[in-house]
Amino acid sequence: MSMTTADLLPCAEPVRFLDEHGQLTDPGPEATARGYAMPSDEDLLAVWRQMVIGRRFDTQATALTKQGRLAVYPSSRGQDACQVAPVLELQEQDWFFPTYRDSMALVSRGLDPIEVLTLLRGSWHCGYDPVQTHTAPQCTPLATQAVHAAGAGHGLARRGTDGVALCFIGDGATSEGDFHEGLNFAAVFNAPTVFFVQNNKFAISVPLAKQTKAPSLAYKGIGYGIRSEQVDGNDPAAVLAVTRAAYAHARAGHGPVLIEAHTYRLEAHTNADDATRYRQADEVTQWSERDPIARLRTYLTGTGALTAEIEEQVAAEAEAYAARVRERMNEEPVVAPLSLFDHVYAQQTPQLREQAQLVAAELEEVQG
Rank of each mutant, 00 (worst) to 15 (best):
A152V: 11
E229R: 01
Q347L: 06
Q355S: 04
G68F: 14
Q351C: 03
R101K: 12
L338G: 03
F57M: 01
G255M: 05
P14G: 02
G221R: 05
Y100R: 06
Y73I: 08
L90G: 10
F341P: 05
H148L: 13
F96V: 08
L18W: 11
A209M: 09
R101H: 13
I226S: 02
V47N: 00
A346G: 06
G172W: 10
Q348A: 10
D43Y: 12
A85C: 11
G78I: 10
D178Q: 14
N234L: 06
C82H: 05
I310N: 00
T133P: 02
A346M: 03
I169H: 09
E309I: 04
H125L: 08
A191Y: 07
H125S: 13
A218I: 02
G182S: 12
L300Y: 01
E289S: 14
R56C: 00
F202M: 04
N271L: 11
L166V: 14
M3E: 10
M104K: 10
D58W: 11
K66P: 00
H148V: 11
Y264P: 05
W124T: 15
Q138F: 10
D162H: 13
R251C: 11
T285S: 11
A31C: 01
L363K: 08
D282H: 15
S288T: 09
G127H: 01
L70F: 06
R158T: 12
P27V: 15
F189H: 15
E362P: 08
D94G: 14
V164G: 08
H262W: 15
D80M: 08
G35P: 03
S288N: 10
L142F: 12
R328A: 02
P98V: 12
F196L: 01
T270C: 03
V52F: 10
A37C: 07
T99R: 03
A31K: 02
H269F: 14
L363M: 08
G182R: 06
R277C: 07
A238H: 01
